[in-house]
Simulated assay, not measured.
Amino acid sequence: MNESSSKRPLYVGLFIFIGMIFLFGGILMVGNLHETFKKKMQLVSLFDEVNGLQTGANVWLSGVKIGKVRSIRISKSRNVWVTLDIENTAQQFIVKDAKTKIGTDGLIGNKVVIIYGGTENTQSVNDGDTLQVGSTYSTENMMNTLQKNNENLLAITTDFKKISHKLTTNEGTVGKLLNDNVLYDNINSVALSLNNASAKADKLIVSLNEYTAKLNRKGSLANDLVTDTIVFNSIKKSVSELEKMTKTANVFMENLKDASSNPNSAIGVLLHDEESGANLKKTIENLESSSEKLDEDLKAAQSSFLLRGYFKDKEKEAKKAASQK
């Protein structure tokens, strides 16, 4: 009885000790405190702002948790020094030119530090090294971008509303074009005129092509004019002769003009002396009447029996010559 009573405290103490071990192990597992006993290295990054990052936040590399934020402090220049506790097992995967940025665990989750980038064949980081900070796209930046997009969209819809109002109220060129039938008909007429002009231009181009083809055809006048030097020289000579004739005609007209302006010349007398002109006119009338009388006398001579045979022979000879021709 006394022996069993003395062993009871021993059993109770052993049971409590085992329970304490399980409790301590559970606390370490649930609170993730077992990592406290892992060997770690420290890295530092200098941020302009941390967007609500807190001590104890996770550190990720390629989506894998490799450490936690040890401390956050503000420097004299108002930058933020963030010290990271990194597992030694991840040291070989972080190179010296890698960068850090602040992200979120999900869309609106807790803030985390993300290590990314770096070139191959670069030396791994050492304890106490400083990593450069890369571009950080926070939820606030996204919301600001969305806000600007909303403002731009509102401005676009406002402008479109004004444009549609002008279209429906016949304001502006497009509004008048849509609602004014006369203006539409005028524009349609202009379009038809342009189409006709285009068709004529096409015909002109075809004609020019045909003309140039004729220029290249040997034996044609156009080709001879372009390529035959003999024909060209003949035309050139003819043109020079025409120029000489033109000059001679000009000299003749000048002389005639001078003679007509001189009242003592024959032409001047005819143009300026009315009496001489009247006499010349009378002389011409006498010549006309004399020629008429001469025609009558010749017709009378033809009907005379003395000369009738002579005129008949002349008529026969004329008919014979005409038939031979």
Rank of each mutant, 00 (worst) to 15 (best):
N2L: 03
K7G: 01
L10T: 06
Y11L: 07
F17D: 02
F17R: 06
I18K: 01
L23Y: 03
L23Q: 01
G25T: 04
I27E: 00
N32H: 10
H34S: 05
E35D: 06
E35F: 00
E35L: 05
K38V: 02
M41G: 03
Q42K: 07
L43S: 05
V44C: 06
S45N: 05
V50P: 14
N58V: 03
V59W: 02
S62Q: 13
S62W: 02
G67L: 01
S71P: 05
S71H: 10
I72G: 01
R73D: 08
K76V: 12
S77A: 15
R78Q: 15
V82W: 04
L84E: 11
D85A: 05
T89F: 13
Q92E: 13
F93E: 15
D97H: 04
D97M: 09
A98L: 12
K101W: 02
G109T: 15
K111R: 15
I114T: 11
I114M: 12
Y116P: 03
G117H: 05
G117D: 01
G118H: 03
E120L: 04
T122R: 12
Q123K: 15
G128A: 11
D129S: 14
L131D: 06
T136W: 00
S138W: 01
S138G: 07
S138K: 01
E140W: 06
E140L: 06
L146W: 05
L154N: 00
D159H: 08
K166T: 00
N170D: 09
E171Q: 13
L178Q: 04
D180W: 12
D180S: 08
N181W: 10
N181S: 05
N181P: 03
L183G: 02
D185M: 12
D185V: 10
N186D: 14
N186Q: 12
I187N: 08
V190W: 01
L192R: 08
S193K: 08
L194T: 09
S198D: 01
K200G: 04
K200A: 14
L204A: 13
V206C: 01
V206S: 07
S207W: 13
L208A: 08
N209M: 08
T212M: 12
A213I: 02
L215V: 14
R217M: 15
L221Y: 14
I230H: 11
V231P: 00
S234G: 02
L242P: 01
E243H: 04
E243Q: 06
K244T: 02
N250T: 11
V251H: 11
N255D: 09
L256K: 12
L256R: 13
K257P: 05
A266M: 06
G268M: 11
V269E: 09
L270M: 13
H272T: 15
D273T: 04
E274P: 02
E275Y: 12
G277P: 04
N279G: 08
L280V: 09
I284A: 15
E288R: 15
E296P: 01
L298E: 07
A301H: 04
S303I: 07
L306Q: 09
L306D: 10
R308H: 11
G309N: 12
G309V: 07
G309E: 09
K312S: 09
K314Y: 07
K314D: 03
E315T: 10
E317T: 10
A318I: 01
A321N: 08
Q324P: 06
